[in-house]
Amino acid sequence: MKGGSYSGAFYCASIIISNTGFGSIGPGSTFEIILICIVWIVSRLLLVLLIGRIMQVIKASSSANHKYIEMVRQLREYMRHRQLPEYMQRRLLTYYEFRFQKSYFRESEILATISGQLRQEIVMHSCRKLVENVAFFKNLPLTLLVRIVSCLRSEVFLVNDVIVRANTPGNSMFFIASGTVAVFTASGREICHLEDGAHFGEIALVMRDELRVASVIAVEVCELYRLDRKEFVRAIHPYPDLLDNIQRIAADRMERTTMIDEHNRREMASRRLY
Rank of each mutant, 00 (worst) to 15 (best):
M79V: 12
A64Y: 01
E86R: 13
V72K: 05
Y95I: 00
H66A: 09
T94E: 06
M79C: 15
Y68N: 02
V72A: 03
I58C: 04
E77A: 13
R91M: 04
M71W: 03
R90D: 15
Q74M: 12
R53M: 09
S61Q: 07
L92P: 00
I58T: 07
Y96R: 00
S63C: 04
Q89Y: 01
K67T: 03
H66L: 08
E77S: 15
G52I: 05
P85S: 08
K67Q: 13
L84F: 13
A64Q: 09
I69M: 05
Y95M: 04
N65Q: 09
I54D: 04
I69T: 09
Q83K: 15
R80T: 15
R91F: 01
Y68D: 01
I58G: 01
Y87A: 11
Q74D: 10
R73Q: 12
I69Y: 03
N65P: 00
R76C: 14
V72L: 11
Q89T: 13
Q74C: 11
L75M: 12
I58S: 05
H66Y: 10
Q89M: 13
P85H: 06
P85W: 05
H66E: 11
M79A: 13
A60S: 08
Y95H: 08
L92A: 11
E70N: 10
M55C: 05
G52Y: 10
E97Q: 07
L75V: 14
A64I: 02
H81E: 12
L93H: 03
K59E: 01
G52M: 11
L93V: 02
G52F: 11
Y87T: 12
R53F: 14
R53N: 09
R91Q: 09
R91K: 14
M88V: 11
A60E: 12
N65D: 02
Q89P: 00
L93I: 05
K59N: 04
R76V: 14
Q56F: 11
P85D: 13
R91P: 00
E70Q: 12
S63Y: 06
R91I: 02
Q74I: 07
Q89I: 15
Q56V: 11
L75F: 09
R76P: 01
I58F: 08
S63A: 06
